[in-house]
Simulated scan of single mutants.
Amino acid sequence: MGPVTPLRAPERVPLAPEPVPPLPLQLQLDEQRALLESISDDFDVSSLLDTDEALSYRQPGVPPDVARRLRMGHWSIQASLDLHGLRLDEAREALGAFIRHQYKRGVRCVRVIHGKGLGSPGRVPVLKTRVQRWLVQKSEVLAFVQARASEGGAGAVVVLLDRSR
């Protein structure tokens, strides 16, 4: 091997450091809002329900006659949600979205059809107790009662939404 001449080093341009990825602030805010609005399956609702001739619930501070008037059909049902055939997680999400949407629309009275459980294993209603637990946790809900026979009876609840917020 003979004399060697080194290659000329190419000019180098310093690269800027990798940019820091942006923080997904809107995603974080959405997730926090979803957690606040989330509904728990483990909430014990039995102490909050009035078990008279038909099941009813009213928020603290709501007069007892509101549940009676709701049961008698004082407010007309303006929207309905049928949860038949939905799995628990789908039903929970559908109910939360339905209540939020109707509340934003200014709707006062809605019906939620959960079924009587006749198609469930052991013919025990699964959604009925869950719907009650979920509704009690929604701040938009002032009161709910078991629907009259013509509105679904034990397979549905009539819900009165707060209009003052």
Rank of each mutant, 00 (worst) to 15 (best):
S80T: 10
S80G: 09
L81H: 00
L81C: 04
L83Y: 02
H84F: 09
G85K: 11
L86T: 08
R87I: 05
R87H: 10
L88R: 10
L88Q: 08
D89G: 02
E90W: 06
A91E: 03
A91R: 04
R92T: 08
R92L: 03
E93F: 08
E93I: 09
E93G: 05
A94S: 07
A94N: 02
G96M: 05
I99A: 02
R100G: 06
Y103C: 11
Y103K: 13
Y103M: 08
K104D: 14
R105D: 11
G106T: 09
V107Q: 03
V107M: 14
V107F: 10
C109L: 09
V112K: 00
I113P: 04
I113D: 00
I113E: 04
H114M: 09
G115F: 03
K116P: 00
G117F: 06
L118K: 11
G119W: 01
G119S: 06
P121T: 14
G122A: 13
V124Q: 14
V126E: 15
L127Y: 01
L127F: 13
T129Q: 10
T129M: 05
R130E: 14
V131T: 14
Q132E: 11
Q132F: 07
R133S: 14
R133L: 03
W134P: 03
V136N: 00
V136F: 05
V136T: 13
Q137P: 04
Q137C: 11
K138A: 07
K138I: 11
S139F: 05
S139A: 13
V141K: 02
L142Y: 06
L142P: 03
L142Q: 07
A143Q: 03
A143H: 03
